[in-house]
Design a protein around this nucleic acid. Sequence first.
DNA 1: AAGTGGTCTAGACCACCGA
DNA 2: CGGTGGTCTAGACCACTTG
Lengths: 250, 250
Amino acid sequence: MDRTAVHRPAVSVDRTSPVPLYFQVAQQLEAAIRDGGLPPGSRLENEILLADRYGLSRPTIRQAIQHLVDKGLLVRKRGVGTQVVQAQVRRSIELTSLYDDLLASGRSPSTRVLELGTLPADDEVARELDVAPGTEVLRLRRLRLTGDEPLALLTNYLPVDLVALTAEDLAARGLYEMLRTAGVNLRIANQTIGARGATAIEARLLDERRGVPLLTMTRVAYDDKGRPVEYGCHVYRASRYSFALTLVER
Amino acid sequence: MDRTAVHRPAVSVDRTSPVPLYFQVAQQLEAAIRDGGLPPGSRLENEILLADRYGLSRPTIRQAIQHLVDKGLLVRKRGVGTQVVQAQVRRSIELTSLYDDLLASGRSPSTRVLELGTLPADDEVARELDVAPGTEVLRLRRLRLTGDEPLALLTNYLPVDLVALTAEDLAARGLYEMLRTAGVNLRIANQTIGARGATAIEARLLDERRGVPLLTMTRVAYDDKGRPVEYGCHVYRASRYSFALTLVER
DNA sequence: AAGTGGTCTAGACCACCGA
DNA sequence: CGGTGGTCTAGACCACTTG
């Protein structure tokens, strides 16, 4: 009987809550995993027992477990059972902005707005934003800092009629947060991550020397109607920034 | 009635097939999307009608649709319906090796094995592979080329007893394919993507000059039991390689 | 008000795994 | 062989969006 222990965390669901039952279950299991009640490698009870314990149906329990499998916290194997993953799962790259990322990691970001105005779209911008070349688009250039240290140079293009932006807002909040507030629901983004040497202008703004390696990220984000809403070309000081992501095999 | 058209692709499922019904439906819908039968922005019929059309239950149809939503091909909105995403979805980074990536994109990769042997793990390798410092581990260094052009320098560390590797095999197949064949099921990987300048050795091997920007990727991959099975430190010529990924908001 | 997807149930049978 | 997750059904009620 010296197998991997099966744990039984305390459980309860509130059927009057607007929070879906499967989500309540998932939250409780995730909390148990994160606080050690369900240590890495431990096995969950099978789905039938869990359903009985929570007073829910098996499909609902399955939905909760699937949610955590998608998040990379659990692993299921037919004929075997469900186990807590041993590997530490890091936050994956999500549809958030650098500003959000820095806030979440406890650092204090600041922003200097270098430019905020409209100009005719060149061919590349027009293609990515799906407008005719020459159409007026908004261009936004910002320098992101932590403390006094420049971290990244952010250039964004947006359709002019999408949202009203002011430099003051942008200095205090992230672009993505402002878009969400304006009712723009971001759904999909295509990103490309690469590297290149700094141009003279980039070097000056980022307090580096010309030619130092920079990490680049270009991104086109689309809203829930599939319209492109933002095209960004960002460069990061490689000495102070990297992308971390967790991949989960389905 | 000049709304977004609702399309009705031809449908059929084979109930004698071992392929799950929801997966057959998902495949047919995906094919219709990719070949233009379901153009970007078009609306699917509602779930009830689709279930009737396929002769399946609604949960099964929902499972198929959810599969494509996860892939970023469809978007669902309550009270509205299901639409084909307008944005082009690129292949996201998955648990595959560079070798697989190159094969899939139609280029002809080749590999030169520079080193294949064991050595005592230093502190960093020991920490990532979860072994005691000084434990013998396998080190593998390879140069990846397309045609005659060096593309990347790959350094991997693996537990010694995991799989028997030969230089010949590694020259012909990707590491991940060999691991899968050996019964190692990769489930989770933590990756970090960054950039730095090339060292003199890297520059010589990659046919670049010292200090040129390189894209770096370090990865720890875990199998389905949560054991670390591979620690890789790879550098790519930024002039010839970048990472593309598609993010989908859930 | 009508139509949509979101959630939930209580069963059922099957495929795979390990002893 | 028994136990596990994988798939599937035929309903039900609800929340949200749009006209």
